[in-house]
Amino acid sequence: MTEPRSSILQGTLDLMVLKTLEQMGPLHGYGIARRIEQVGQQALIVNQGTIYLCLVRLLQKRWISSKWGTSENNRKAKFYAITKAGRAQLKAETENWERISGVIGRVLQPESGS
């Protein structure tokens, strides 16, 4: 029973990370985690460690790239940026997400006009 839930979560996290990088430009792992938490307005609790596993996956698929750099506080950090393939994937995933959430929304909506 845990398998479908975790896979949805995993896919969703990938989507959120890609979107964050598209919007914010290159970010380090901590920055990505913070940004997702802010956008989620604390409603979404993300284990920051899982962000790194997600980044490993996205890197392997070449949807993001990475480069060591210096943070705003002058600390060494690894920065991630979305690639062209990543943008295409994000576009496809977003459309898919909207379609599915639309369908689910319609299913869950109370019937009107009856």
Partner: peptide, 16 residues
């Protein structure tokens, strides 16, 4: 090694 470094820096930034 790369991953260990990254986690170290993550903790340092978060702590700061």
């Amino acid at each position: 090694a790369d991953f260990d470094h990254e986690l170290e820096h993550h903790l340092a930034i978060a702590e700061e």
